[in-house]
Design a protein around this nucleic acid. Structure first.
Lengths: 146, 146
DNA sequence: CGTTGACCTTCCAACGATGGGAAGGCCTAC
DNA sequence: GTAGGCCTTCCCATCGTTGGAAGGTCAACG
């Protein structure tokens, strides 16, 4: 199976398949005499595993761990669960940060008339820094969320 | 005021101040005879505005719009509100995507024994693709969230 | 006046995951 | 044999941010 067909079958773009191979997440694919990558059913299986883990927001580093455990018949499920829990915590942190931003900004927007006058509490608060509540005074809420 | 002091006073790192200047978000700073950037109170004011907008998760492009309106005495608050609402919608989309991931993964993790046996529903579901619910079948949930 | 250390300057690179595109080779159907 | 659709590698861009190297400047201290 060509890389294009593998991409189609797995839902991972050909670009990303090459990238995953190059970065060591997945093993080097077999090659035909002319240099084309060749994929078999187990390969597609693995690619789908990777895509589903990506859909759950796992980083490539985490997926690398998960793939290792997936292929390790003597794994302990506790290890898998630990990785999952860590990722869930990460997701919750990001959700909380975004929610704080949304809450603050919603309060600001609600207090803005939104008409053709220039007065605007949103700009005023951004200017004075009196961001009502819940905004951490320093330390990268905006950064952590990106 | 030097860039270091401006960074201290505004909460924007010197690195980022240079980057913002270079990318056109903020105007070119005054320079001393020896080439050092010089910042005055209004400059610090603007930098603080930028930092607060970043803390609320606005992109640099959005901040550019907001800065323009901030300095435009004939602005319409409706325009500011429109940008804010757009960003709030974006935040909610990202929150929803992350929440879906967290929900699915929590369900999976809850069903995993987490002991020293290899059996693990998390890996099984990643393998089979039967991700219980709420996971969009395709189309970059994982991508959109990053 | 000289040295030292803390600052500043510009330039280049990296992160993480992904897409775009160019230049060139291969394969298949007609 | 040729067209056009694949494939290959390589480089670039994104976005916001940080790190570092190489070199200039400034203030304080002896």
């Amino acid at each position: 199976m060509n890389i294009g067909q593998a991409a189609e079958a797995s839902g991972v773009s050909a670009k990303m398949i090459r990238y995953y191979e190059q970065s060591g997440l997945i093993p080097r694919a077999e090659r035909t005499a002319s240099g084309y990558r060749e994929y078999s059913e187990p390969d597609i299986h693995m690619l789908r595993f990777v895509r589903r883990a990506r859909d759950l927001g796992f980083s490539v580093a985490e997926i690398s761990e998960l793939l290792g455990l997936w292929q390790d018949q003597s794994r302990h499920s506790a290890e898998v669960k630990r990785i999952a829990r860590g990722h869930i915590d990460d997701l919750h942190r990001r959700i909380r940060d975004l929610q704080e931003m949304a809450n603050t900004l919603t309060t600001l927007a609600d207090s803005c008339h939104g008409d053709d006058r220039p007065e605007c509490p949103i700009l005023e608060r951004l200017e004075t820094g009196d961001l009502i509540a819940a905004i951490k005074p320093r330390g990268g809420v905006g950064r952590a969320a990106r």
